[in-house]
Amino acid sequence: MKSHKLLTTAGIGALMFGMTSAAMADNWRYAHEEYEGDVQDVFAVAFKEYIEENSDHSVQIYRFGELGESDDIMEQTQNGILQFVNQSPGFTGSLIPEAQIFFVPYLLPTDEETVIEFFDKSKAINEMFPELYAEQGLELLQMYPEGEMVVTTDEPIDTVDDFENKKIRVMTNPLLSETYNAFGATPTPLPWGEVYGALQTGILDGQENPIFWIQSGGLYEVSPNLVFTGHGWFTTAMMANQDFFDGLSEEDQQLVRDASEAAYDHTIEHIQGLAEEALNKIKEDCDNCTYTRLDEAQMQSLRERAPQVEEAYVEMAGESGAELLEQFKADLEAVTSDEE
């Protein structure tokens, strides 16, 4: 397992040292939730390169653990210590309940090309979500997919009944807990830094993540049975502190928007074929891993439980969540209709 550098008083001191008004800062600070070379890091590096090639500004990237867990970097962004943050709706959902829509199972298709087209064209993604983030002092710059979700477990999963009472780690997100309750498992919220050890010691029976993260984080070493359920994609969002962004000149605001667009295009290209590459690395490295792809009948058994999660989502997210869900489905329908 990779070592995790935890947040320290000294680390925060270094971060704050010499810091002037965030709006005037030429060295912009950007934190994300993943390791070097992972998808969020690919996005961050592309963003940094565009900014530095097209301006006198510089961007300092902080990776997982360098400034704490996901909740820590969001708090630092809202407080203006960080200018940019990349955080998945799995953690943002407690702040923005509507963002939990990505955890309604079987809402998004698993076909990569369709998912990418949806993110490019969706009104829900590109028009409605920025307004919701702005209400929390955040300038939403990009939402993008990272990969299909895959479940790993301590024992092979042959049927959906094998999920019964399995302690599955979930992000600290109430709707994701509803999803695994619907699947018959026992959802267990846990910060990412504790997951490997909890799988290793049997505190957890399994977890879910995109395949590249399972490979990068070495999760297959302690949770070697991979189950492709087809229930969703991992999505993330890149945003700025709203006060910082509003304080930029029009030229710099456009620079940031252009950089995020360039990073999005680069990252979308990067994720194509990434899952297959990561899976092959796991197969090369793991002799005792198993791989189960649920057949259509088994997925249908889980899909039939999705409506209760939708109901829970609307209850949590309220009227705005219901409107977002309606638009989300309309956007998906438009994309899939175009392909027929």
Rank of each mutant, 00 (worst) to 15 (best):
E69V: 11
F118H: 03
T20D: 13
A46E: 07
A23F: 08
D161I: 01
Y291A: 01
S122N: 10
D205S: 05
E52R: 04
L274W: 09
V256Q: 11
I73T: 13
A46F: 00
L226G: 07
F163D: 00
P105A: 00
Q272Y: 04
I268Y: 06
V160K: 03
A198P: 12
L107H: 11
E194N: 13
P187D: 04
I73K: 14
H32Q: 14
G80W: 05
I203D: 11
A99L: 12
A185E: 01
Q78V: 08
K121T: 08
E127P: 09
S177P: 06
L255M: 10
K123G: 00
P210M: 01
A23V: 15
Q136Y: 02
L7G: 04
K123N: 09
P109Y: 09
A198V: 05
N280Q: 15
L325M: 11
M143K: 09
F129M: 15
Y180R: 04
R29P: 05
G202F: 04
S301F: 03
Q87W: 05
G137F: 03
P189I: 02
L324R: 10
N27G: 03
A240V: 02
P189C: 01
T236Q: 04
E33D: 09
E251D: 14
E52L: 08
E250N: 14
P130W: 05
N280T: 12
D72C: 06
V151C: 06
H57I: 00
A262C: 07
S223L: 06
K329Y: 07
I101R: 00
E49N: 13
M299T: 07
E284H: 08
E52F: 07
Y144I: 00
A275P: 02
E34Q: 13
V45E: 10
F212N: 06
I168Y: 00
Y264L: 09
L255S: 05
E208K: 10
Q298W: 06
E98Y: 03
E261D: 15
V39L: 08
T8Q: 11
T159Q: 06
S55Y: 03
I214C: 02
H231A: 00
I12R: 03
V222K: 12
